[in-house]
């Protein structure tokens, strides 16, 4: 599949993950989120930005368990919980948030 963003065609795989992560920008994130039915709020962006920082540092999209733990460490246990993250991204903070963040599907995620 593909996304149409600013008159440009952005390539994605059959599940909607970007083929080239360098294609990502905030506008495209809003577009993917809309496709996913996720209304982007500052709280959503906080997680998306965290994921992108994590990827920049470690070159992988973290497993949900690892993401939850890392967020708890940085932003406190309230936000570092499955409940909070699944409320923001009902289809999974791993899969759905990574897709919006322009990252590959987390390793080991089916």
């Amino acid at each position: 599949m593909a996304y149409e963003c600013n008159g440009k065609t952005i390539e994605a795989d059959e599940e909607g993950f970007l083929v080239n992560i360098s294609d990502w920008n905030e506008q495209l994130a809003e577009l993917i989120a809309k496709d996913e039915g996720v209304p982007m709020s500052p709280e959503h962006w906080e997680v998306i930005n965290f994921l992108r920082d994590y990827y920049a540092e470690y070159q992988i999209a973290p497993a949900v368990r690892v993401l939850t733990k890392a967020i708890a460490k940085k932003m406190g246990p309230e936000k570092g919980s499955n409940k909070y993250l699944y409320e923001l991204f009902p289809y999974g903070p791993g899969k759905q948030a990574c897709k919006i963040a322009g990252l590959p599907k987390p390793t080991g995620c089916v």
């Binding site: 470690y58 070159q59 973290p62 890392a70």
Partner: peptide
Amino acid sequence: HKNFSPTYRALEGY
């Protein structure tokens, strides 16, 4: 090629 060496530093988090 992708430099995957930074990923070894993520192992601790796993």
